[in-house]
């Protein structure tokens, strides 16, 4: 039988979220809408100032029923936990843990959404879901394309509900998108998709 590098991966799904301008408020809406029993790990890349520190994690923790923590190098990926990319590092995923990189910014951003989404696509294949929210950037479209190419699912915040519509619009123009949803419907959709496992 063919050896699969994914066999040892207990975590079957992964939700990757990317946001830029207006993202901290949008993320708070999305993350607080996820149910307590959400069964997949969630990784979040938000473009932000490198001095952001732990403030963002604190902010997102409020109202969120799930555990929110900053990802560090080699942090194991566990279901039902929300991991925030640290400022000034690219966030990537390996088979069952996170990895960081200080390589040059991509799309003027570090962390970059494309870098994160592409690694999620490769590690989780058809079990990956990518959601792209508000932003005044072109980051994320390539990443969603990769998630789609490896059989995953793509969701974009409807541009008219986004504080900055450029990022979701760019993704709609360049990538194959499964669902375009208003911000407040993204969490229920992800919950339905990931919790109704038989």
């Amino acid at each position: 039988m063919r050896k699969s590098t994914r066999e040892s991966n207990d975590v079957r799904g992964f939700v990757a979220i990317g946001a830029s301008l207006g993202g901290s408020d949008a993320l708070r809406v999305l993350l607080s809408g996820l149910p307590e029993n959400f069964p997949a790990p969630v990784g979040v890349v938000l473009h932000r100032d490198r001095e952001g520190g732990a403030l963002l994690t604190e902010y997102l923790r409020k109202d969120c029923p799930l555990e929110v923590r900053e990802a560090e190098d080699k942090t194991p990926i566990a279901p039902g936990i929300i991991y925030i990319a640290p400022a000034n590092y690219h966030l990537l995923v390996e088979k069952n843990h996170f990895a960081l990189s200080t390589e040059a910014p991509v799309n003027h951003a570090r962390p970059a959404i494309d870098v994160f989404f592409e690694s999620v696509a490769e590690a989780f294949g058809k079990y990956a879901a990518g959601a792209l929210l508000t932003g005044n950037s072109d980051d994320g479209a390539r990443g969603l394309t990769a998630i789609k190419r490896y059989g995953g699912m793509t969701v974009v915040q409807s541009p008219e509900t986004a504080l900055a519509s450029r990022m979701p619009s760019a993704a709609l123009a360049d990538a194959e998108i499964d669902r375009v949803l208003p911000l407040d419907e993204i969490a229920p959709f992800l919950a339905e998709t990931f919790t109704s496992r038989k």
């Binding site: 699969s4 590098t5 994914r6 079957r12 799904g13 997949a40 696509a121 490769e122 590690a123 294949g125 058809k126 079990y127 879901a129 789609k148 190419r149 490896y150 059989g151 995953g152 699912m153 499964d178 339905e192 998709t193 990931f194 109704s196 496992r197 038989k198």
Partner: peptide
């Protein structure tokens, strides 16, 4: 829909097989 039932595009020429990551 379950996580296993994500829209798959098997048989469609423009979509790479998911295991291309493993080949790489």
């Amino acid at each position: 829909m379950t996580a296993r039932d994500f829209p798959m595009r098997d048989g469609c020429g423009s979509i790479e097989k998911p295991d291309s990551a493993e080949v790489e």
